[in-house]
Amino acid sequence: MTDPVGADVDALLEGVRAATVSMDDFRITPDTLRHQAGVARAHANGQLGENFERAAELVDVPDDEVLALYELLRPRRATAEELEEAAASLEARGAVRNAAFVREAAAVYARRGLLRTR
């Protein structure tokens, strides 16, 4: 099953019965999110568009890693080095917006005392 959007519900249900459909088949794609980003911008919300662009980069990041990144961005969870490591890792996978976002956080956290100090 590759295109659940176009697939008719009965066909999807057949897939569920045959165990050929799983949660993985209900993942939004980066392209769809970029399309939705365009829709958001066209409706005067550039920030929502930017969120969808960041989300597009996260589609292929595994659930556990997404949860771990969230944890890392919470107050005093990470050192500057750990955040830079995370940013570099995101960048290496083409998640450039998220990488820049993490670096921006790291700079602000340093200034506001929100890094883990040891």
């Binding site: 939004i28 999110l33 969120n51 969808f52 960041r54 989300a55 597009a56 980069e57 996260l58 589609v59 990041v61 997404v66 990144l69 969230y70 961005l73 919470r74 107050p75 998220n98 976002f101 993490v102 921006e104 956080a105 602000v108 956290y109």
Partner: peptide, 12 residues
């Protein structure tokens, strides 16, 4: 930033 990341995570 953590909340914004969470927001993107849901959208993703």
């Amino acid at each position: 930033w953590s909340k914004a990341f969470l927001t993107s995570a849901y959208a993703s």
